[in-house]
Design a binder for these strands. Structure first.
Lengths: 181, 181
DNA sequence: AAAATATATTGAACGATGTTCAAGATCTCT
DNA sequence: AGAGATCTTGAACATCGTTCAATATATTTT
């Protein structure tokens, strides 16, 4: 239902009807909608993980090229799974509640796709520094994808967006290498 | 109320009580909450615009340095106006409704802070190409600020975030110049 | 096989929320 | 002062997520 109608289009009553049970029966499977959304998010992250792995496994590209491919694959996945992907970032917990550990874990899991090639590029750097760099790289790419796929402002065609992202990643890596030298 | 309790903490009844009028009277000032949020957003954007202007007006920095300062100022503004700033990006229109022109205009207005120094850096490029580059730069910085200020995952202290952003902007510009040569 | 216990399902009801609207109050202009 | 326009009120509506006592089903025990 999220994939078809977006996060805002997910209603427990519609969901119950689609499943074929009563309103209240939804709460036998899930504590509340927060958990439901997070569970869907984890499935989406798992599919994303496979896509990212597949994006580099074919040949053995350089760390730089690996990072570029990861970014492009991320962009493509977001475009092809727009609503599911958006739901993960649009969703906010009910006031006061924390994101459960299993969900945080599933999110952090994906950073290894960025962390590993970064570590190969900068063997001298510590784990914490690499972690921050990985987060920065991801955030920047994520921002470009998020606003690029939002039709609200300037509309950018997907091929142009992919090219922009590739340029950004290459520029960031070059910049990091230059400052390391 | 958005600044204090966040976008999700804005309720029309509380608002009416705070203003000192009946529930329904809110709708004499505003068509619906969507408009209310957008109006608040426009005020926030106006304040942001002033901050960005002030960030470069003192001396006369190079275009590169100007872009770095704009990015840092954007980060600082977001940190100091966290809920108001978040509200602008978290808010989604009611299903089927489009963002009104005056709001889109107020949003696009800010791009000149990025566009102008970019145009100085790349005088040969056309308006459309510059527009795309400006959007990319903004998206990348916005992404870093958005995820950086979100405590959910890895917590990054503000000074570290500012340094990361400055590095990203410099790297992107260097990369753009290198490819232009 | 029957009774007893545990579990699952139902759908009406609750509380919160955005929004509407007829009735009443207030203001404005002649 | 009176007529017409405008504003204000607060009850009522529709739509949500969520709860829960009653009912139905499944499992275990005797």
């Amino acid at each position: 239902m999220i994939a078809e109608r977006g996060l805002a289009g997910l209603k427990t009553r519609d969901l119950a009807r689609e499943i074929g049970c009563a309103n209240g029966a939804v709460y036998n499977l899930v504590a509340d909608v927060d958990e439901l959304v997070l569970r869907v998010g984890s499935r989406t992250l798992l599919r994303l993980d496979k896509v990212l792995s597949a994006a580099v496994s074919a040949d053995n590209p350089s760390p730089q090229e690996t990072l570029v491919r990861i970014a492009i694959a991320y962009c493509d996945f977001a475009a092809e799974n727009l609503e599911l992907w958006r739901a993960m970032f649009e969703h906010r917990m009910e006031a006061g509640k924390e994101v459960p550990d299993w969900s945080v874990h599933d999110q952090l899991q994906l950073f290894r796709h960025i962390y590993t090639p970064l570590a190969a590029l900068f063997p001298d750097r510590g784990a914490e520094e690499l972690g921050i760099t990985a987060r920065s790289l991801f955030s920047a790419v994520h921002g470009m994808v998020a606003l690029g796929l939002e039709q609200r402002l300037v509309a950018v065609p997907l091929p142009a967006l992919r090219k922009e992202i590739a340029g950004l990643v290459r520029a960031m890596i070059d910049g990091l290498i230059a400052r390391a030298a």
